[in-house]
Write a protein that binds this DNA or RNA. Structure first.
Lengths: 150, 150
DNA sequence: AAATTACATGAGACTCATTATCATTTGCAG
DNA sequence: CTGCAAATGATAATGAGTCTCATGTAATTT
């Protein structure tokens, strides 16, 4: 079986004199199927567990090209390491809520905020290339189980 | 001369069994008066130039406590090192536009976005503790002087 | 299908921001 | 003025990420 993304990767890479190696396909497939926001080390460990042989250096290099060709998005949750998520629809942007207790990430999209960002940038003639919005706090599950403070 | 923030620091620290050392006052004063978004290394270099003796380790430790006691805000512009800015009014939040050409940082505040963030978090019962919004791109100065591509 | 070759990989050295260790110093309460 | 908990400085350690270089391998060419 070959996923849609894999076919697309082979096409895009061929058009750019890049090679569709098993390592690249493994990383891409993992991100596509997991739906999570994984860091490089986690990707490395999961591929090892699946008996895929790949080195850390290749993980980093692969993520770089996957980001460059818009297969994957690189995220910074301000905790010292980058996360990566699939980028199914490059036109559609979404933002993140990060639970600081359990680490779970919730995605959301708000067209009004997107529009306001555009307007703010234009006000000072700032050419917006990308933007990020993160909400940090405590998710409902973690909030409910909170221990009553003594 | 003693700035308001310095007086406040001495008070807050005394109330928490922390010491108001010259190094801490130097770091705080630098951030208060510069108005810039400085990283630890830059703070270290500027204090050395002013003949203040301080070590890198102390810079990092000091920034940690200044953040903890809300004198200073820690910012992550996703380029591998943290920046720090004064936090004059902890109730008032502002966001950042970062020029990826010259590195300049522009601040902005938009109450509508703030309100929307609150609403989004409440929708899924997420208790928002903090949030960040960064717009990355090219500032007007850098955009104007763009070299016409060959 | 074998040869070719430019691109990719693996292993490990390296960088650089940040944190930890520990002996020494110092703010400040009594 | 003294005692001591907290802070500092020097430096080692950590950890994410990058670089190097010898070797391997997609994919094109013959």
């Amino acid at each position: 079986m070959q996923t849609q993304a894999e076919g697309s990767l082979k096409r895009v890479f061929r058009d750019n004199a890049l090679k569709a190696t098993p390592q690249r396909l493994d990383v891409l497939k993992l991100l596509m199927t997991s739906g999570e926001h994984l860091d490089a080390e986690e990707i490395y460990k999961r591929l090892l567990k699946k008996k895929k042989n790949v080195s850390r250096a290749t993980i980093y290099r692969t993520l770089e090209v996957l980001v460059e060709y818009d297969f994957v998005r690189k995220l910074d949750f301000a905790d010292g390491r980058m996360r990566y998520e699939q980028n199914q629809n490059p036109d559609e942007h979404h933002d993140h809520m990060v639970c600081q207790v359990c680490g779970k990430v919730f995605e959301f999209f708000n067209p009004q905020i997107e529009a306001l960002q555009e307007a703010i940038a234009q006000e000072i003639n700032f050419q917006m290339l990308s933007h990020t919005m993160h909400i940090y706090g405590i998710c409902s599950a973690c909030g409910d189980s909170a221990d009553p403070v003594a």
